[in-house]
Computed example of a mutant assay.
Amino acid sequence: MTGTPLPPRGSFSVRPARPSDDALLVEGVGVEPVAWVASAQLREEMATGNYRLEWSWIAERDGRTIGRALWWGREDAGRPATLDCLWVADPADHPEDVGAALVRAGLDSFGPGPALEFNVDVDVDWPSDPAAVHAVRWRERAARAGGFRLTTERVSFARTDTDPRPGRSLRLSFAPAADDVFRSMFARVAAGSLDAHTLDMVAREGLDALAEDDLHFYLSLPGDRDAWQIATLRDGSTVGFIIPTRTAYDASISYLGVVPEHRGKGYVHDLLAEMVHVHHENGQHRIVGTADRANAPMRAAFTRAGFTVSRVRIVHEQ
């Protein structure tokens, strides 16, 4: 989203990082109870190209750094995917003004392309912590003022290969399929979805646009495309599909879907169990996944498959 500069309460400027800004990028210290990109991680991933100077923005007042925004992307990507860290020096003094200007600068600079996200990770009990509530809320105001349009609270889950594995399905078979098959499946499972992003995009742009956007997004993620599978019954009828991929750091339960005519029969457990086995059999130690707070059936499925809640992620989307 583009727009005119946001009117600040105090005079400050926002600019992209320069080669001489290495110290500026790493000197900020996170004091709020939200996830933080620490200096060691930032240096390591600057070297791999997951963070880059041209994807990093700095806010200054009177020659002093008062904020930074760090965007993350794949090593081979031409533009970032997520805003991972939005920091201001004084979170008590209208931080949403500086934050919004940093967000707006990035969105304007990166231009058209796949929708971008801003992720804020907090502890599970964050609503009971006033400092966490403040940290989440000012970032939400900054996200909206800066150009993000939709906010969703997601619950993050994780399990390791030392946790008991769920039983593998005895009623479904799994097989690979071409991209166009998965594109049609994205459209089929959208009916009756509880996912906030799906509902929003279908309402705004329709099923075809959703299916194309989902396919493009999941193809862009790290992981093995050959692991994508269609699930069928013995009579050949399609029940759903699974897309096991990766985040930057862990194996991921990226997407699973059951077609409307087969819902209510517990197939979500079969699909999730298969994804767990696929990842662990491929040598993945840790598997992560997320479900919208409102999606109680998916959260229950994660628990049944041996996952535990690890954090809450506030996701701001374009």
Rank of each mutant, 00 (worst) to 15 (best):
L107T: 07
G289K: 04
P222H: 04
G289M: 05
E75G: 02
A77S: 15
P19M: 07
D292V: 00
M275G: 08
L210E: 00
S109F: 08
A190M: 06
R79D: 10
R168G: 15
H316C: 07
W138E: 06
L42P: 00
T151V: 13
D163F: 06
D93G: 11
V124Q: 06
G28D: 04
D180F: 11
W72G: 04
R64F: 06
V26T: 15
V309I: 14
V136P: 09
F307L: 09
L233V: 04
S56Q: 06
V259H: 00
T245E: 07
R139N: 07
R15C: 09
V202G: 04
T303F: 13
G63R: 05
A105L: 06
M298N: 02
E45N: 12
G306I: 01
F186H: 15
V37L: 02
A251F: 03
A209M: 10
S184W: 14
T232P: 14
A273P: 07
D235C: 02
A17H: 03
R154M: 14
T48C: 10
E96M: 06
R304A: 14
T82S: 13
P222A: 01
H197C: 08
V136I: 03
A273Y: 06
G283H: 02
N282Y: 09
V122P: 09
L219C: 14
S252Q: 10
A101Q: 08
D163M: 10
G266E: 09
A191M: 10
A38M: 10
A100R: 00
V31M: 13
D123L: 05
D121R: 13
A211E: 01
T198K: 04
S20N: 06
A35G: 12
F110V: 15
Y267A: 13
M275V: 09
V31S: 15
A231F: 01
A211Q: 04
R311Y: 11
G264F: 07
A300N: 11
D250S: 09
D208F: 14
R246V: 02
Y255C: 11
L256P: 01
D226Y: 12
D84H: 11
R171N: 09
A145E: 06
A38I: 01
S169V: 04
D180A: 07
M201W: 15
A38P: 10
P114E: 07
L70S: 01
A142P: 13
V31F: 12
